[in-house]
């Protein structure tokens, strides 16, 4: 087991030992159960039946919004809790460099986000295929309707995770870093309304977060390529990463 893997396992152990993750998974299951219950009641009252692929796609779309916010919370918390409890000192007096510590935390968050989303996708699909009508289509429709869109929205989710993570390193405050990421996330739509016709709009990060549009064949701004979007996205992500590493490395721990 490499040293880095050991650090990631540590972070994973810490996240799974806190109450948040299990409680959040229970919350997701309650949402799923309620949706299933409502649909079954709706059908028994004579409402139209739902296809299992369609049900999965709708439910997963809703829960992945929740998971987006949840991942912002844990991306902040994985940093701020160590400062709050003073355990940051324990982490930083080990052979591991500060950059390595930071990277192990980032990798762990990405693993948690993948785990929660994929687990939810699997459970929802399983329940839907058992309970609802599957005649309309099988796995390949699931790929089109749920799995692929999820991976194409992942860059968007990851961006706000990086924002929360960097804000947490800078501010060391849980409330502040969650607020910054959530507010940016919810105001992005409005912000775009104001700036989408500006010539420099294509150099902001916002048009490059939605990769679904490229899949649909309609680029977010006319004339730009996926390569350009990918490059801009990578640039912003790298900048956030660099800021968090530099600040974290330089900081005197009181």
């Amino acid at each position: 087991m490499s040293y880095f893997t050991a650090l990631v396992r540590n972070e994973w152990m810490k996240i799974t030992s806190k109450r948040q993750l299990p409680y959040y998974l229970i919350f997701l299951l309650v949402v799923l159960a309620a949706a299933i219950g409502f649909q079954l009641w709706f059908q028994s009252e004579g409402g139209s039946e739902v296809g299992s692929v369609g049900f999965t796609s709708v439910i997963f779309e809703i829960t992945s919004v929740f998971t987006g916010i949840f991942s912002i919370v844990i991306a902040s918390q994985i940093i701020t809790d160590e400062f709050k409890d003073g355990t940051i000192k324990q982490l930083l007096i080990r052979p591991a460099s500060r950059t390595t510590i930071l990277m192990s935390k980032l990798v762990t968050i990405m693993l948690v986000v993948l785990f929660v989303n994929l687990a939810m996708m699997l459970v929802t699909a399983l329940a839907a295929f058992i309970l609802f009508d599957s005649s309309a289509g099988g796995i390949h429709l699931l790929w089109e309707g749920t799995i692929l869109p999820f991976f194409l929205t992942l860059p968007n989710e990851l961006f706000y995770i990086f924002v929360a993570f960097t804000a947490a390193v800078l501010t060391r405050s849980l409330g502040l870093s969650i607020s910054i990421a959530v507010i940016l996330n919810s105001l992005a739509g409005m912000l775009i309304m104001f700036i989408f016709d500006k010539p420099w709009y294509k150099y902001t990060v916002f048009p490059h977060l939605d990769w679904n549009s490229y899949y649909k064949g309609e680029p977010p701004i006319e004339g730009i390529t996926f390569g350009f979007s990918f490059g801009m996205y990578a640039l912003y992500m790298l900048a956030l990463l660099l800021v968090s590493i530099l600040v974290f490395k330089k900081r005197d721990i009181q």
């Binding site: 050991a6 540590n10 152990m13 810490k14 109450r19 409890d85 080990r94 052979p95």
Partner: peptide, 20 residues
């Protein structure tokens, strides 16, 4: 400073993995 939400054993495991 220890991780209060984990057991003593988990804490030791955590720091054992970190010591290189």
């Amino acid at each position: 400073e220890l991780y209060k939400f984990m057991t003593g054993r988990q804490n030791l495991l955590h720091f054992a993995r970190m010591c290189g």
